[in-house]
């Protein structure tokens, strides 16, 4: 088996995650889909690392994880705050960007 298969899997998962972001309205699920995309990217990075024989890819994946963790913390805090004031976790309800 070629390690490229990992890349294909990563691509598929990434696309799935992206579609989830676009289709789901629950902000938490949207967030989970973003996590899925990040994980797919991580898989690709790890695979690259292996293909190229150095650890830089893994370092990148590590940083991605750190950033993702930070992002999750802040993002969930925002969701909780929004839910408190609007009683809804739907991303469509916050359509205030329109005049």
């Amino acid at each position: 088996m070629s390690p490229e298969n990992y890349l294909y899997l990563a691509a598929l998962l990434f696309t799935l995650g992206a579609c989830g972001v676009l289709l789901r309205r629950n902000a938490i699920v949207v967030f989970m889909c973003v996590e899925l995309m990040l994980n797919a990217a991580n898989l690709a990075l790890v695979t690259f690392s292996r293909m190229h024989g150095n650890l830089d890819g893994q370092i990148m994946a590590f940083f991605v994880m750190v950033v993702a963790a930070a992002e999750v913390v802040v993002g969930l805090a925002i969701i909780v705050t929004v839910y408190r004031s609007r009683h809804s976790a739907s991303v469509d309800d916050a359509s205030l960007m329109k005049l």
Binding site: P3, Y6, L9, I28, F31, M32, E35, N39, N42, L43, V46, T47, S49, R50, Q58, A61, F62, M65, A68, A69, V72, V73, L76, I79, V80
Partner: peptide, 30 residues
Amino acid sequence: FYLANGAYFLGMVQIVVYTGAVMMLFLFVL
């Protein structure tokens, strides 16, 4: 898969941080 790709540290971190911490955070918020 990380483990299989030789990223042992990341594999463990994935389980501990992601599945353990981040997903739990998600569930708490849920």
